[in-house]
Nucleic acid binder design. Structure first.
Length: 409
DNA sequence: TCTGGGGTCCTAGGACCC
DNA sequence: TCTGGGGTCCTAGGACCC
């Protein structure tokens, strides 16, 4: 999408331009680790002319949808696992040549969307992930790796070359403990008795071992399950000291959380709020209080939820602290259709009016954007110190008219 | 001065029940 | 001085995912 930065040092920054969350190969070669604070590498960035972009979720979401819709053409059984990964179940097409299909996928996505992708195939999700890792890292495989056609010897040889850390579900802590027990490669892990793994680690890792052996333990999820908890939290662009100023982001975050709740047609039975000072500043007195309250009646009503959250905020706030982050959480979530009314409150006209108001609110947000209608806030025109910093946003090439790329004839 | 956000699952331990 | 057994539910914290 941005040919002018190909082969350059490029990073993408987290919210508030805080940390490096994505690096081009050139930056990885400089030894910049994932999660490095951006402000700590200004000198390096100057030396190597590293180009930094603020994260642009609208743009990534749009590109993701495009890629996923291309991939869906290859199988009706698709699980969108994350913004940049999906699983396709091909067991209903048993005679297909997966290596050929993989190349077709790569070529079509490259041509239609302009993004490079890699494709891995295996008999389980864990093996498919591992194959994908191989396809991505080993350039001689031209972006595709099919483990299903390898014989036992070739598979064992390949797994012997892959560190246990590169297996899905194994991160540093587990890796250290595995290595102490002599389990170093993916092949070692595959050959370990699942019962021993269960005893020494967990059922989660036991499933991984079985999956490495071709026994499917992790099913394809074609529809994302409803969320059991919904969190909205963000660091502020600048520190906040006053209760009135903290109330603004808490209101805004809860408004978002309530939207998500209604989108999955659920209601929440409990609300939590927390605020934090900057844990990296030794010179500050630290304060990170939180509070949770059960609602008398489950609801998805923005106004109720905001009111409750502000009440909790008042309870936990202490003056004199330098707050840099706030968050809200909705839990005890259940489908709105199963909602049990409280013993004393009848499903009154007022409740129904409120529900209709929420429908209007969601429609307005969908049409005019977030903030078009918001619960009474004291912050429309005041300078919003808490608003996120995004100094180096890439253009929203596909989601904003003014940012459409121009083609010069 | 500046250090991300949003999830799930599992386990252990405490409170409580019969 | 002696102090069961089996179960559920809840919470906190760890570990992991992207």
């Amino acid at each position: 999408m941005a040919p002018h930065i190909e082969k350059q040092c490029v990073v993408v920054l987290s919210n508030n331009d805080g940390c490096v969350v994505a690096r081009s190969a050139e930056v990885k070669a400089l030894g910049v680790p994932m999660g490095m604070p951006w402000h700590q590498m200004q000198e390096l960035a100057r030396q190597h002319r590293i180009v930094a972009y603020s994260s642009n979720y609208t743009y990534y979401g749009d590109m993701s949808r495009r890629v996923m819709s291309v991939l869906a053409q290859y199988s009706p059984d698709q699980e969108i696992y994350s913004v940049d990964e999906c699983f396709l179940d091909l067991t209903r097409q048993p005679h297909i040549d997966l290596a050929v299909m993989g190349q077709s996928i790569r070529q079509r996505v490259k041509q239609w969307i302009g993004l490079p992708v890699s494709v891995g195939a295996g008999h389980t999700k864990t093996l498919a992930k591992l194959a994908n890792h191989v396809a991505k890292k080993r350039t001689e495989r031209s972006g595709v790796c099919d483990l299903t056609t390898l014989d036992a010897g070739a598979t064992a040889a390949l797994l012997q070359t892959i560190g246990v850390r590169d297996v899905w579900g194994v991160v540093r802590k587990i890796e250290e403990r595995l290595v102490m027990q002599g389990i170093v490669t993916a092949a070692d892990l595959r050959n370990t008795d699942p019962a021993i793994i269960r005893r020494n680690f967990s059922v989660v890792l036991e499933r991984t071992v079985r999956e490495l052996n071709g026994v499917s333990c992790i099913a394809l999820e074609d529809a994302p399950p409803d969320k059991q908890q919904i969190i909205a939290s963000r660091s502020f662009g600048a520190p906040v000291y006053e209760l009135a100023q903290l109330a603004e982001p808490v209101r805004a975050y809860m408004t978002r959380a309530a939207e998500k709740l209604r989108r999955q047609h659920s209601v929440a039975g409990a609300v939590g709020v927390w605020i934090e000072t900057n844990r990296f500043r030794d010179q500050d007195v630290q304060h990170h209080p939180s509070a949770t309250v059960r609602l008398p009646e489950s609801t998805a009503d923005t106004l109720h939820l905001v009111h409750t959250a502000i009440g909790l905020l008042r309870r936990i706030y202490r003056s004199g602290h330098r707050y840099v982050k706030a968050g809200v959480m909705l839990t005890d979530i259940r489908p709105a259709a199963l909602q049990q009314g409280s013993l004393f409150a009848s499903a009154s006209e007022a409740t129904e009016k409120r529900a209709r108001l929420m429908t209007v609110l969601d429609a307005a947000t969908a049409k005019w954007g977030r903030g078009a209608i918001a619960p009474g806030t004291a912050g429309f025109s005041a300078p919003r110190a808490w608003a996120m910093k995004r100094a180096a946003m890439s253009p929203a090439y596909t989601t904003r008219w003014s940012d459409l790329p121009r083609v010069l004839a």
